[in-house]
Amino acid sequence: MSNLQNNLFDIFYIDTLACRQSWIHSLDPRAKVLTTLIFVGIVVSFDKYEIAMLIPFFIYPAVAIALADLPFVYLAKKMLLLLPFAFFIGIFNPLMDNKTLITFDLKDIVDLMEFIGFKENIGKMGTIDISGGWVSFLSIMIRFCLTVGAALILISTTGFDAVCLALQRFGVPRPFIVQLMFLYRYMFVLIDEASRMVRARSLRTFDNSNQMRFGIFISMVGQLLLRTMDRAQRIHLAMCCRGFEGDIQMLRAINFGVPETLFTAGWTSLFVILRLYNIPVKLGMMIENLLLS
């Protein structure tokens, strides 16, 4: 229960974030939806052992968070809360996939450290083997952070109704859009109603266990369902009183102009470049050459 209430606070908070003013906030929602989808698509397109090439993709959340002035700590916390699921599945990889994928030669590292300035003898030479499982596990975690982060950034810079609007312009059928809008609107009302019911019951439960028996549970859920259906009827009546005849239309001017084109095209080209060139490795080699030459 508290979990859901927290979720509700989250939604409220994200809603507030979406109301902020920034360049990113002011963009046509279509640009942001499109960019996010492309980002997610490219991130998950990497091979399962890929780590290095995923890293540069953090540029997108980083820049977006900076430009939109989003609270990084909050987003990171939210992401951490969601981590266990990916962790649960991913953790099997190290167990199942024991093949050595990367071998570090300690000698190289010692060479490097000596070059940098460590003069002491570091110890025995040898190699460290890292299995493919650990590599792919790490890769899953990084993908998770990137994809979840992108979704959170989308919603907290755009807001739910603007995302719906974008989806509608992309050709998502009207009934589904209307459904999303209604769901979002009444989620707040009904969660409030449900929590009042739960509170009222728990205040009259005098043992500490606070366990709910099945029978009580059913009558509460049933009551909530009946009230919900009554509410639907009242809403329909309110709609009819204002001339509703089966179709909901909205007036919204959105404009996919030059800034939107630049935003989408700019990010997309960057993502594609990052997808094609292994910049971290290149960078690493460059540094290496620089140091050892």
């Binding site: 209604f182 989620m187 969660i191 369902l225 639907a232 909901i248």
Partner: peptide
Amino acid sequence: IPLMGVLGAFIFA
């Protein structure tokens, strides 16, 4: 139309 909307919200609630 409103019924399916609020029932979606009900699933949450």
